[in-house]
Nucleic acid binder design. Structure first.
Lengths: 273, 273
DNA sequence: CGCAACATTGAGGGCCCTCAAGAGGTGTGG
DNA sequence: CCACACCTCTTGAGGGCCCTCAATGTTGCG
């Protein structure tokens, strides 16, 4: 069924409707964050791959052996089960937090227990590189979507290591600078782009070129559509309507959690306004 | 005239209507940025107060003499006339840019020559602490509102100095971390707060306690109201209507560019939603 | 005084949210 | 195996928020 539906009648998804990803096993009403457990399951020591975060996030040159050693000596690795909290904005940040593997939602736990996702992070990536330097609470709540492996570096100890290894300080600076730029772009788009443009931009950014159809691309949604909507600061209903609107225009073709981009150029134009 | 107007009739400002600040002398259609001039008017050398930026922005402990020396050796001071561009987002950032004194608008110069202000910075403060680390173009355009003094540190040279003075690297890190936190808060408010809440928050943040009237406070607008609106991502018309709405509720009292906050607690409540 | 820029106010409308209903899928217990 | 609960996604109806456009009043300046 290549043609997008055109009428207002009930739309029936094709039989190959993709099953919802694993997040279905993580209901939103997952157990609330229990801070007392945060410190458990800690273990210390050099772990292979400890430098992947720093290399992946702060540029191409690999860390020197001495730098790896300095980091490994103070790294604390934590495994977080699906649905569990990683950190809470009600607790003072004393460590830099990285995500080695897994998916974590950054957002805000509301009074009624639900979680408002603002951003979803897939490892390896930083989760909170900034709060610890200010002796403030974490800026957001973080909740694991699937099983996740988290690495933390105590700020006090890291600060001493940075003094001896300027290359590491440089990585921290570059990582923070990247974050500033990303947030600035985000702010700009929220201020000046409407919902269709933000969605088009979001889709355009995660286009993966599709072999076999020149110019076309595919976007796989690794999260619930309501979480996509949440990241774009729109409601799930609006997201659904926009997807249908783009489909009617022949720009994309939606099939469950797969979005096929038929006309990337038009999608780019939609992202402009 | 203490009571706010209540009817829909034409409102007449009291005679003591404050004259618009100096920005009136800087028309929005000021001369476009001429990049060739950016490098002019540079001079080098140690300048008294060079460390004020670093001290003001990155914490209480004053810089050591050695640190001041390291910074002064590479600092480039520039004086920018009112209405002139400070940097442009079409040029690669090679320096960290600080504002020692004056006011600078950060935003985007649009195709039609107008300037969309997203943030207004009053020195001493950083103007762009992040772009140079990524070898990217500046994230925004910057335009001086009044006469401004700008200090720049070339990234290459600074990076070498940071390696020898870990305390300076720490300052850069803290400065960037502050910026990340501020931007995160900003993003959150844009996503989840409506226009009245954002305005209330904005006013609440810049309350200056008012002697003589316990609990009350005053907010002086140092910029055109249209620039205030721009920072809040609303139109000047909406800002005007909201000001009147708050006045009708008895929360504030507007007199030209002076806003008197009659009920800070209520203003805080308005900022919550 | 005429002109330019800013602020204010009103009328109208578009965008997007809220609320509600229904379809389809999955896991669970009888 | 089926009923049931529960979740997600979709679609429609209605409405509120805020933008756009236009007109008016005020202030400062040549």
């Amino acid at each position: 069924m290549a043609a997008p539906p055109t009428g207002p009648m009930v739309i029936r998804m094709e039989p190959s409707f993709a099953a919802p990803p694993a997040f279905a096993a993580v209901p939103e009403r997952a157990a609330a964050l229990r801070p007392a457990q945060l410190g458990q399951a800690l273990r210390r020591g050099a772990v292979p791959g400890d430098d992947s975060l720093w290399s992946a996030l702060a540029g191409t040159p690999a860390l020197s052996d001495a730098e790896v050693e300095a980091l490994a000596g103070i790294a604390q690795v934590r495994h977080v089960a699906a649905g569990q909290g990683v950190f809470s904005r009600s607790h003072t940040a004393s460590t830099l937090v990285g995500l080695r593997s897994g998916e974590v939602a950054l957002g805000f736990r509301t009074a009624d227990g639900t979680f408002r996702t603002e951003r979803i992070v897939r490892g390896p990536a930083w989760l909170d590189l900034s709060s610890a330097w200010l002796d403030e609470a974490h800026a957001m709540d973080a909740q694991a979507l699937g099983s996740a492996t988290v690495v933390e570096w105590p700020r006090e100890a890291l600060q001493q290591r940075l003094a001896k290894h300027p290359g590491l300080a440089q990585r921290v600076i570059v990582g923070l600078a990247r974050e500033v730029q990303a947030l600035a772009v985000n702010t700009h788009e929220l201020m000046h782009k409407d919902a269709p443009a933000r969605l088009a931009q979001w889709l355009h950014q995660r286009c993966e070129p599709l072999a076999g159809a020149a110019g076309q691309a595919i976007v796989k949604l690794h999260e619930r559509k309501r979480d996509v909507a949440s990241q774009l600061a729109i409601t799930p209903e609006t997201l659904s309507r926009l997807m249908r609107s783009f489909s009617r225009q022949g720009v994309i073709e939606v099939s469950g959690y797969n979005v096929r981009v038929l006309d990337p150029v038009a999608l780019g134009r939609l992202a402009q306004a």
